[in-house]
Design a protein around this nucleic acid. Structure first.
Lengths: 149, 149
DNA sequence: CGCGCATCCTTGACAAAGTCAATTATTTGA
DNA sequence: TCAAATAATTGACTTTGTCAAGGATGCGCG
């Protein structure tokens, strides 16, 4: 019990030299409980958690956590930014063009092969972000129904 | 000379059942001349080309062209949408976290392997978008200079 | 060549997402 | 407990993009 739980939120913050505040703890909790939430969604859930938080507080906490790798920010076209707690495991996302649903997928080819493009143009690459676009089962069914017409 | 050039902009528009207008022609020209331009940048260049265009005209033209596959829209996090003329060749992008510079790269593993995630969750996938994040040569140098301090 | 209809463009108001800057509050080490 | 450093709140502002109504243009047809 006295051992360091790496998942202990307060300890994680301290490990990164960050102060421990109710806002940050609540944001961390919400993000891991509801992956792929938007900033707005996080704000709502945080308010349910600790009563209130300012918009700026949410952006600030999410930004700080993202800068320190405690949270990952993804920004699909046509949708506000979304946040999730899974970091550092090289997983990617599958997004529905119709309803915007986001699902996690592990990297297609294994560990981190995506980190080796055919020509890096001299860039110093540190991440490969992959988004698979398509239609989720529900929306696929809707579209087929329409086509069969 | 009289043969159909598939790259003939006006013909391309007609092939897709679209009217040929000065605005669309100018937008197409600008997008292929300046890949990765933002909507704002396209608007400026189009004005230099044909005198004037409304903001809505630019968005409308870009949207219509994108819907018809004549232009590709990419939307990197932390940056407005960008547009390019290269379509259908499964190439990806390399973006600098500092200066936002965008560079094309061919698909890392070949044709379209990205279209086969390890688990498609029942989704009907039609595109895989890959963004490599890192630092361009110039910004890498700047950062190292700062670190060597 | 000119008419009419469909399509397109312009205009101006509006909305969403996020940022900036100044002030106030909280955390935390001494 | 105190003071300095760090965070949070507040409210105005910016950027990027959309909506809706009306005028202008492209283009098939006679």
């Amino acid at each position: 019990m006295s051992s360091k739980q790496t998942a202990e939120p307060a300890a994680l913050l301290r490990q990164h030299g960050l102060q421990v505040t109710a806002q940050r703890l609540a944001v961390m909790k919400v993000v891991s409980a509801h992956p792929h939430a938007t900033a707005e969604g996080v704000a709502e859930d945080v308010r349910a958690e600790i009563g209130s938080i300012s918009r700026q507080g949410v952006y600030d906490a999410l930004g700080t956590l993202a800068d320190n790798g405690l949270v990952r920010r993804i920004q699909p076209a046509g949708s506000p930014a979304r946040f999730e707690g899974r970091t550092g495991d090289n997983h990617h996302h599958l997004i529905c063009r119709d309803c915007g649903a986001v699902v996690d997928v592990d990297c297609a080819v294994g560990a981190a092969p995506c980190l080796t493009p055919s020509d890096d143009a001299g860039y110093n690459i540190d991440e490969a972000e992959v988004i698979y676009w398509g239609y989720c089962p529900t929306c696929t069914a809707n579209r087929e129904a329409r086509t069969d017409n």
